[in-house]
Amino acid sequence: MTLVSSTPLLTEARKQGYGIVAFNVHTLEMLQAVVEAAEESRSPLILQTTVGTVKHLGIDYIVGAAQAAAKQASVPIALHLDHCQDFELILKCIRSGYTSVMIDQSMHPFERNVEMTKKVVEVARALGVNVEAELGKVGGVEDDIQVSEDMATLADPEECRRFVELTGVTTLAPAIGTAHGIYKGEPNIDFKRIGEIAERVSVPLVLHGGSGIPEAQVKRCVSLGMAKMNVATELKNAFTLSLQKFFSEHPDDLDPRSYMSVAKKTVKQMALEKMKLCGCTNRA
């Protein structure tokens, strides 16, 4: 297979009431691990990279690895650029083979967000590339984007309807009380707001800040219309902690194939658990 647009995958997920997990990957081993998990569980998969990871690894290396994975896989795989504010970088990623992009202008007034999102949609639509945008401000830290708790704002349901209508965006990430990073306590998710947004908006909704949300809350979000859940911090932390543990137990084993294999298994196990949680197993 080749990399596919996430639009039909997410449209089907919302229609059938399950969620697809989008995993932020930073290394080849992380990418391989989530692909193996998707194959094993027969789950559709969204590989996701932040702007920081794009700068760290390079667009061509990321796309090359994702395309190689998609070619060998029997499940559909999409490649998504997460939280990008740079229109030119979005164009580069689309030209290079990304099948989904997020234009994040949520820090600007509604009119500016509409204008920039519409600009990306006009380019992406012709190529069948999915476009995600955000309304409201999700708190926490995502790469170099930092939104303090007092600056986080929830999305207005009626604004969400207008936004989708005005932009033609194919997926929407409304701020509903989740946060990027690991929660200090229970996340304060506004389920009523999700329901009100879902009533007005037919496109798939995206749950940002998916790391560490209690299982029952994830399932409720998915049942209300969240067709995509992003998992970044939890996966990254599991990968790194497994390396720390390996070196504490095997300080003299400096073979990357040894410690990376262990980290890869850890990531794969977490990916399998998240896919089962969102209900996308056996949906490929």
Rank of each mutant, 00 (worst) to 15 (best):
G212H: 10
F191T: 00
V138S: 07
L224Q: 01
S96C: 07
V218R: 10
P214F: 11
Q146G: 07
D150F: 08
E199G: 04
I194G: 01
T171N: 11
G136K: 00
E111I: 08
E199N: 10
G97T: 10
L166C: 01
T117L: 10
E158P: 08
R193K: 11
I145A: 13
I145F: 13
P187V: 05
K184R: 09
H208C: 12
F110T: 03
E142Y: 07
L224G: 00
D190F: 06
E142W: 10
P187W: 10
V141E: 11
P109A: 08
M226K: 00
R220T: 12
K192W: 02
D156A: 11
H180K: 10
C221K: 03
L207F: 04
E134N: 07
G139M: 07
E186W: 00
V120N: 13
E122L: 15
C221T: 05
V201D: 10
G181F: 05
L207Y: 02
K192V: 05
C221M: 06
M107F: 13
H180N: 02
A175G: 03
E149H: 14
E199Q: 11
V123F: 13
A133K: 01
V206A: 10
I213R: 02
V164G: 00
R161I: 01
L166K: 10
H180Y: 02
L154R: 08
G136F: 00
E122C: 08
G139T: 06
E196Q: 15
R112V: 11
D144C: 07
V206W: 06
A152V: 03
S106G: 14
V129N: 09
C93M: 11
V164K: 01
A126P: 03
T178H: 05
V101W: 07
E215Y: 12
V141L: 14
R162N: 14
K137D: 04
R161N: 09
S202R: 14
D150H: 12
N130W: 05
